[in-house]
């Protein structure tokens, strides 16, 4: 396969940045998207050019490091897939592919396609700890959890904090991420003592970081590689209304 890439190049946080075109030839359809970029970078390095910087780590879809908007869609055209698990067979010979970083004020570009997602850490920190005794693992049946709740909490816990929800949101909101964390802990008995303060503090940190407000447009869940459902945002809203009523 021969492709034309239009990649966002930005030297540093202060640089203005621009889209730059590259031709890549002899791409195997079995390559992952990141391997295709590796190939481009090897060539750029040999030619004495600066390679394209992008985040990546596990390359098996579980770490949440890779973060690219491919042809206008976070993580590219394939549903429930991170960029690293996207394969070149999804594209056709001769395609032009636009590659951009996540765009959000809360996620400033560090270089090329790498953004700083520290704002998510701030939200997690604001959520604080849960009151659970540490030490040896507790007896599994000492705190019964209904199966349905355990499943739903687990589904929410599969969030890998990649930030695709923010990248896709027309409002630049990080509500799906925040809601996934609220749902994950709010459904389990271990998450109850701090349930009220958690939702209030995490939402405050979310707004403080410069994310936009949620209008339930649903773009986030459409691009989420883990399929976090939009209903989690309803759980966050309900927890927030309850917590606000108690203060």
């Amino acid at each position: 396969m021969n492709l034309t890439l239009r990649v966002w190049r930005q030297k540093g946080p202060q640089d203005k940045g621009r889209m730059v075109s590259y031709q890549v030839t002899d791409v195997s359809p079995d390559m992952s998207f990141l391997e295709m970029l590796d190939m481009l970078n090897e060539r750029l390095t040999l030619e004495g050019e600066e390679p394209v910087a992008f985040d990546h780590d596990c390359r098996e879809g579980i770490c949440g490091a890779c973060s690219m908007v491919i042809n206008g869609t976070a993580h590219g055209p394939q549903k429930l897939t991170t960029t690293c698990q996207l394969h070149m067979r999804t594209f056709s010979d001769g395609d032009t592919i636009d590659i951009e970083p996540w765009r959000a004020k809360a996620f400033p570009v560090i270089k090329d396609l790498v953004v700083n997602r520290g704002a998510f850490d701030k939200i997690i920190q604001a959520g604080g700890f849960i009151s659970a005794p540490t030490g040896s693992a507790p007896e599994a049946h000492s705190t019964p959890v209904p199966k349905a709740d355990a499943d739903e909490a687990f589904d929410a816990a599969t969030c890998i904090a990649c930030g695709a929800c923010v990248a896709a949101c027309p409002n630049g909101s990080g509500m799906l991420f925040t809601a996934a964390k609220i749902t994950h802990l709010g459904l389990l008995p271990q998450g109850q003592p701090e349930r009220d303060s958690r939702v209030v503090n995490m939402l405050a940190a979310h707004d403080e970081a410069g994310f936009g407000g949620c209008t339930n447009a649903g773009e986030c869940t459409a691009v989420c590689p883990k399929g976090i459902p939009l209903t989690t945002i309803g759980r966050l809203n309900r927890d927030f209304i309850k917590a606000s009523g108690k203060r």
Partner: peptide, 30 residues
């Protein structure tokens, strides 16, 4: 209005290429 202003501030640099993913016409035209 306050939501729209927050949305504008939350994405200072626009995408060069923006696809309609979910594309609910109603949600986009609110």
């Amino acid at each position: 209005t306050s939501l729209a202003l927050r949305a504008k501030a939350a994405r200072p640099v626009k995408y060069a290429h923006r696809a309609k993913v979910q594309g609910s016409y109603a949600a986009r035209t609110m």
